[in-house]
Write a protein that binds this DNA or RNA. Structure first.
Length: 276
DNA sequence: TTTCTTGTTTTCAG
DNA sequence: ACTGAAAACAAGAA
């Protein structure tokens, strides 16, 4: 599922493929993908030039001339790719952006969970979802000290805290499990019970892991591909996610899968011990 | 038919 | 007003 490294890989691909191109027409095939008025979305985007493509957490931000930004979230299975305009539409294609070069940028989403919304760039930060977003883990804004202070204030388990995007942006279920294994932290440990050295390690591992995953082009578990339709390679580097019943690569203990805050959670019962 | 999947938003209790 | 927990919701695959 697209988490920060996958979204960043998509972003980089899109930047190469569609930056500085002009949208000549938009066709919405499945309207629920669009948040807000669909006519308005289509009308305002037509004739716009894609000036840049940024990312914040797991959100893609397409910046257009005229002070407009399209905020796009891929959720579980959203994908962008390019086709010649005369190619037949593939299954699960929900939005088609025709470009000024006989090509089309197509949004495809088997689950139809993804969403896109057109907003004024100036109002971007007020958007629900973006307002509460924590620091970007791969920027200098993600400081160990701030992280420690925020954790000390939280009386909830570290796993759901990593998923809620306020401590740090961009982690999802896969990388949350991975960084906790790397840091030898039991997923149900309360944030305010974490020791200074654990927080330090966790902070470092989040940065290292996401950096490595971006370098590998992300993780392809089921169907993820980037804008060039390439799979990621980081699934070969995973230590716990999807490895229930297999031996821990550090100690040989069988990896367990439990449910934490309604999410599948993988961990090593030996390396990641419950604290008393 | 039931279960499983995840990220975000909403709801509710305290 | 805030926090945390849980439910809701999106929809298809197996």
């Amino acid at each position: 599922m697209p988490e920060l490294p996958e979204v960043e890989t998509v972003r980089r691909g899109l930047e190469k493929l569609v930056k500085n191109k002009v949208i000549t027409n938009v066709k919405v095939i499945y309207p629920k993908i669009i948040v807000g008025d669909q006519q308005d979305f289509v009308q305002k985007l037509s004739g716009r030039k894609i000036k840049s493509i940024k990312r914040r957490g797991k959100f893609l931000l397409f910046n257009f001339n005229g002070g407009l930004t399209m905020v796009s979230h891929l959720r579980m299975e959203g994908k962008y790719f390019i086709r010649q305009a005369d190619q037949p539409l593939e299954k699960h294609t929900h939005v088609v952006f025709s470009l000024n070069d006989e090509k089309q940028l197509r949004y495809n989403d088997v689950r139809k969970f993804g969403r896109m919304q057109l907003v004024l760039t100036a109002n971007l930060k007020q958007l629900p979802g973006l307002t509460k977003l924590g620091p970007e883990p791969l920027s200098t804004n993600f400081k160990q000290k701030d992280f420690a202070l925020a954790l000390a204030k939280k009386n909830k388990a570290i796993k759901p805290a990593l998923l809620d995007q306020t401590l740090v942006a961009g982690l999802g279920n896969i990388y949350a499990d991975e960084v906790l294994w790397l840091s030898r932290i039991y997923p149900l440990t309360k944030c305010n019970q974490l020791e200074t050295n654990e927080i330090k390690l966790l902070h470092t591992k989040i940065i290292q892991e996401l950096t490595a995953a971006v370098k590998a082009g992300g993780t392809t578990i089921r169907t993820y591909t980037d804008a060039f339709e390439n799979s990621g390679k980081f699934q070969f580097e995973l230590h716990v996610y999807g490895r229930e019943g297999q031996p821990c690569q550090r100690c040989g203990t069988i990896i367990k899968k439990i449910r934490v805050a309604q999410r599948g959670t993988h961990f090593c019962p030996q390396c990641q011990q419950v604290k008393l």
